[in-house]
């Protein structure tokens, strides 16, 4: 692992992915400790500026996870999120941010195993990219 400990911010929706994280925890499943979870009402609530704010503060990767399509607590929030994320991730990578620093997933509250697996995948990919220097606000 790189010298600096990798930090990943995960925006998890309250109704599915956060539940999955919870279940993974109570089930004592192992997943990397590099992940800091921020609970949001819905993946549709996540705005690009929040993701940029995370990078700005020095995280090395961002992961957004919501309910499976058709299972959104608010019926369609994750459908909108899906469209937003495509354009946002494309533009960020167009600007030169490593593609592997942003991840999306659909994980239901019953899928603790999937949560742990995706967490490992995400962490693995970001760790292999190393610390992020881009879009980070340095001390003035």
């Amino acid at each position: 692992m790189a010298e600096k400990r990798i930090k990943i911010v995960a925006f998890l929706c309250n109704w599915c992915s956060y539940g999955a994280a919870d279940l993974a925890g109570v089930s004592r499943m192992q997943y990397p400790a590099d992940i800091r979870i921020i609970r949001v009402p819905c993946s549709g609530r996540v705005e690009p500026r929040m993701i940029l704010a995370a990078f700005r503060e020095g995280v090395d990767g961002v992961w957004v996870s919501g309910c499976h399509p058709g299972e959104c607590h608010y019926l369609e929030g994750n459908y909108y999120a899906r469209r937003k994320f495509v354009l946002m991730a494309n533009l960020l990578s167009h600007m030169g941010l490593d593609k592997g620093r942003i991840h999306f997933s659909w994980i239901s509250s019953a899928e603790a195993t999937k949560f742990a697996r995706v967490a490992r995948e995400v962490a693995h990919e970001i760790v292999s990219l190393g610390p992020n220097e881009k879009l980070v606000k340095k001390a003035g």
Binding site: P48, L52, L87, M88, M95
Partner: peptide, 23 residues
């Protein structure tokens, strides 16, 4: 969300978000 000075990260963040709002 973003600093007001001439920091390159702030400038780039502004341009990214400005563009994204036009998506």
């Amino acid at each position: 969300w973003i600093g007001k000075g001439q920091d390159p990260t702030d400038i780039r963040t502004f341009h990214f978000l400005r563009a994204y709002h036009c998506a």
